[in-house]
Design a binder for these strands. Structure first.
Length: 620
RNA sequence: GCCUCGGUAGCUCAGUUGGUCAGAGCACUACCUUGGUAAGGUAGGGGUCGCGUGUUCAACUCACGCCCGAGGCUCCA
């Protein structure tokens, strides 16, 4: 079937003469329809076998186009001249009538021009780029669309909640009074959250706080550059990830290449799931023919290691950990957003091989609890729900196990069932947290995968001395979006402040005049190089005290210490605390105790900037 | 990728219905101020008005194309 769509100011037509022996009866004579999408259509011989599939695809196509051009009225206009191989008139009439009937059930208003008549007509086409489109509708198209649907979306069949009591409730049965936070999460999971329509605050903050900005001069869209303060935050989070994945969960650190090829069938299979999201890399020398791709995740290298390894059931379970300083996904132009959706991003990933489903479940639970939930507390968020995206049959088979989860995690499980999953992950958990403004966010994920080992031919030797496919857990956290979330959460407070351990400057020392710079230096050395280590710097610029206090506050410095004659005489420190905005005199020992508590054993790194502010350039 | 809005100094922005319109504040530099917890004063340097093409005697201003950012779709291993 061929169609030509015209977005029109108006169309007028009037049947004049019979074109076939038994044309349709005419109900109305001349008609005029304004502001409409005219669909000139010709049904072809090859369509006769698949009438209903053609109708289905026709309406999808027409609805798509109508939506794009924002047309509310459709005029179905038989126009056999688009093809040289027309179908029988009865087939054509059937398809048009069916399309009319089905389109009428949508919000579109449909008019069908009479079939089998020569008509005079007048039309005024709008002439914008989308106003004229021709489409070929065929059974292959139908098949392709269906395939895309399976791969692209996988329609959700059901959403329900397993409450901490163990009861299973549909979304409507969850009371807002009792579980207000769960209601928020459910809404978001269903995509019902009201869009704010504003720029997210982290966009401005990431620049003004000298954390990161878009690199538009020498790179592609969606590539960030991190400034020293931002890089420090990245490194601290990286240390935390290592603590969690290596020390806490026993993952073994690895590092694999950033460019990968499609040569291996496993890699090829994986890449072909999202071919449009790959960055291609071409070697500079022409004689090198091989094409590479920037890795969309570290899975390729990690799976390759697993494929080469000799693995006994006695080794299982075990995990390989990689901090991905760089991974790339060529996201669509309109999808890019600040630090949330970028093309070059950082992730921390753990891939765990498990012998069987029971072992996988035990690991799954351990990782969700000790990583996916726990890490939110460590970065200052409140985790409120575990969201399980699961293949329907898999859930039914292991329902008992999943219901147990509410006891293990002590939070509700929101279950979304799919007849077909979007990817090769069969059960996919995201943990959702709320920030200070009760906005939901998800940065951690644990996914159970039974398919990848088969495609990559990754096996282990079992007790029976036979090869078995393991189950792989993919566990990860997106670093950039975590930082964005931390920034937004920080900004939502009255006195915006980063968690103490992530504050680039933890203590700012302000000498009252240049006479006291030396003493300030001594204090800075003491704080930076002795227990409890903190990042302290000195504002030695010849500005008035008020001014330097102002700037320290604008930088969200948690503690400001002034040094002058008074302090030296009394042997105390004047400490201004950002959270309270109050100044208190205290002994150095007392201050250090406060700092130690603030640090709370979280990762620490030295100041990545000159200690003297007079030596620092302004990056923004 | 589609629709909408935007891009003028390092930053935040004003402005030009095509021609004395290259502007402000902050930042930066110099000098004065030696100060006590959120902005001390004076002077100065700095811009191919995102990029390209076209229309015009004349384009920062108009048209078209492209790049970049945001909002809304679509989407998100």
């Amino acid at each position: 079937m061929k169609i030509l769509t015209l977005h029109c100011d108006y169309i007028r037509f009037k049947p004049v003469k019979k074109a076939i022996s038994k044309p349709e009866e005419i109900k109305k004579g001349a008609r005029e329809i304004k502001e409409c999408l005219v669909v000139l259509s010709a049904v072809e011989k090859k369509d006769e076998k698949y009438k209903d599939a053609i109708v289905k695809n026709l309406i999808t196509e027409v609805r798509d186009i109508a939506k794009q051009v924002k047309a509310k009225k459709i005029v179905l206009y038989p126009y056999v001249h688009l093809t040289s191989e027309p179908s029988s008139p009865s087939t054509a009439l059937y398809i048009l009538k069916q399309a009319e009937k089905k389109l009428s059930k949508t919000k579109l208003k449909v008019v069908r021009a009479p079939f089998g008549w020569y008509k005079e007509f007048e039309i005024k086409c709008k002439g914008h780029p989308l106003s004229e489109l021709s489409r070929e509708i065929s059974i292959e198209e139908v098949a392709k669309k269906e395939k895309e649907e399976i791969k692209g979306e996988g329609k959700m069949k059901e959403l329900f909640v397993i409450l901490p009591t163990g009861e299973i409730k549909k979304k409507k049965q969850v009371s807002k009074k009792e579980y207000p936070e769960i209601k928020i999460v459910i809404k978001d999971e269903l995509g019902e959250r009201k869009k704010e329509g504003k720029e997210p605050p982290h966009l401005r903050l990431m620049r003004t706080m000298e954390i990161a900005s878009h690199e538009t001069r020498v790179s592609d869209a969606g590539n960030l550059r991190y400034l020293p303060k931002g890089k420090l935050i990245v490194d601290l989070i990286k240390d935390l990830c290592r603590e969690v994945f290596v020390v806490r969960l026993g993952g073994m650190p690895t590092k694999t290449p950033c460019i990968v090829s499609k040569e291996d069938p496993g890699a090829k299979w994986m890449m072909e799931q999202f071919p449009e999201r790959l960055y291609k890399v071409l070697p500079g020398r022409a004689e090198k023919r091989q094409e590479f791709y920037l890795r969309p995740a570290c899975d390729y290298g990690t799976l390759s290691i697993l494929k080469d390894a000799s693995i006994s059931y006695k080794n299982l379970p075990f995990g390989l950990y990689e901090f991905e300083n760089d991974s790339w996904r060529y996201e669509q132009r309109g999808e890019l957003l600040g630090m949330y959706r970028i093309r070059n991003f950082m992730m921390a990933d753990l891939h765990t091989m498990c012998a069987d489903i029971n072992q996988a479940f035990r690991e799954y639970e351990k990782q969700i609890k000790q990583f996916a939930i726990q890490i939110y507390y460590e970065i200052g968020f409140k985790p409120v729900a575990v969201v399980l995206n699961c293949k329907e049959d898999f859930f039914k088979k292991y329902k008992k196990q999943f219901v147990e989860w509410v006891k293990i995690f002590k939070m509700p499980i929101i279950v979304k069932l799919f007849s077909v999953m979007k990817t090769y992950k069969i059960a996919w958990v995201d943990v959702v947290a709320l920030d200070n403004l009760k906005r939901s966010m998800e940065v951690t994920t644990v996914q159970l995968d039974t398919e990848t080992p088969k495609h990559w031919d990754i096996t282990y030797t079992g007790k029976d001395n036979k090869k078995h496919y393991p189950i792989i857990l993919h566990t990860g956290i997106g670093i950039d979006r975590t930082i964005a979330a931390i920034l937004e959460n920080a900004a939502s407070q009255k006195n915006p402040i980063l968690p103490f351990w992530l504050s680039p400057t933890q203590v700012r020392i302000v000498p009252i005049s240049e006479k006291f710079i030396e003493q300030a230096q001594d204090l800075a050395v003491e704080l930076n190089e002795e227990e409890p280590f903190v990042r302290a710097d000195i504002d030695d610029r010849p500005l008035h005290v008020e001014r330097r206090i102002l700037e320290a506050e604008q930088e969200w410095v948690p503690y400001i210490v002034c040094i002058g004659k008074r302090e030296l005489d009394k042997q105390v420190l004047s400490v201004r605390t950002r959270i309270t905005g109050k100044v208190k005199e205290m002994k150095a020992k007392e201050f250090k105790k406060i700092l130690q508590e603030g640090q709370g054993g979280m990762p620490w790194k030295p100041l990545p900037l000159p200690k003297l502010l007079s030596k620092r350039p302004k990056f923004v």
